[in-house]
């Protein structure tokens, strides 16, 4: 790529040190402007200031206050992810195996898929009350469709020659599922889980904001409630860190699980 770029005479990136320099300038200018504006242009109450946020973070990680909240969010996200993966795979395999059923139900599934999962939160509130359960339910709903659609695509992409070959040799349906279908949908499932993991994290945080009583999302909403924006921004930094670890980790190690060289592209992560 770089050689090709170099051959064209206009579109060549500046050397690495200059790019780093520009990035440093942008970052320090933003933080500097924020620090300067605080209590000069805008009251500190509304925007806090970077130095205070840094201090808050050091304090939180020093005295361990933040760890239970991080753990709570990760726990909710992973329980929801687990349940979502199991239900998504089971239903995806069933729908994928029966083409007529798939055809019959797909407009209904697409319609259900149109409704934002977040919109179901008031319903989850009515069903499960406050606390961790409705948040787990939200994570399950967020993860389910990603897993379901990918599994179904995997089943539909199974090599039909293999299935026919098995059939000729007299295999039963359950043997075909066990020996051909499951092995061949594994890459689809891994890909689906790579996409679903950040969704699980988002679901956990968004759910905690709305109906949680602990975790990072709860920290955001409760600190805003007490107008302590330093805490809010510090929590946002922690959330960003968690999101970065997840997405960078997936981009780096996920493809290896799949035996591919290129990273899986997904642009639904942060939004």
């Amino acid at each position: 790529m770089s050689e090709i770029r170099a051959m064209g005479d206009v579109d060549v990136a500046a050397p690495k040190w200059r790019i780093r320099l520009y990035q440093g300038i942008i970052l320090s200018a933003t933080l500097g402007l924020w620090e300067f504006a605080s209590d000069r242009w805008i009251r500190e109450l509304w925007i806090s200031r970077p130095v205070l946020i840094g201090k808050q973070l050091i304090e939180w990680f020093g005295n361990g206050y933040i760890y239970p909240h991080i753990a709570a969010t990760i726990k909710v996200a992973s329980i929801g992810l687990g349940i979502g993966v199991v239900t998504g795979v089971v239903l995806g395999v069933i729908i994928g195996l029966y083409a007529r059923l798939s055809e019959l139900l797909s407009p209904l599934i697409s319609a259900a898929y149109t409704l934002p999962r977040v919109a179901l939160m008031p319903l989850l509130l009515v069903w499960f009350g406050f606390g961790a359960t409705p948040v787990v339910a939200l994570v399950v709903l967020m993860v389910f469709f990603v897993i379901f659609f990918n599994t179904r695509a995997g089943v539909e992409n199974v090599d039909q020659d293999l299935v026919n070959g098995m059939r000729v040799m007299g295999a039963s349906r359950s043997q075909i599922v066990k020996m051909v279908i499951f092995p061949s949908i594994v890459p689809f499932m891994i890909a689906a889980m790579m996409i679903a993991t950040p969704y699980a994290l988002i679901g956990a945080i968004v759910g905690e904001i709305f109906i949680g009583n602990r975790g990072l999302g709860f920290l955001i909403i409760s600190s805003l409630g007490s107008l302590d924006l330093t805490e809010t921004f510090a929590t946002c930094v922690v959330v960003t860190g968690l999101g970065l670890i997840t997405s960078v980790g997936i981009a780096r190690y996920g493809p290896r699980l799949l035996g591919q060289n290129e990273g899986i592209q997904d642009y639904g992560v942060g939004v």
Partner: peptide
């Protein structure tokens, strides 16, 4: 990448 790793919805209350 950093800005994108943050779930934007979490800023709704802010």
């Amino acid at each position: 990448t950093v800005a994108y790793s943050f779930p934007q919805l979490a800023l709704a209350p802010l």
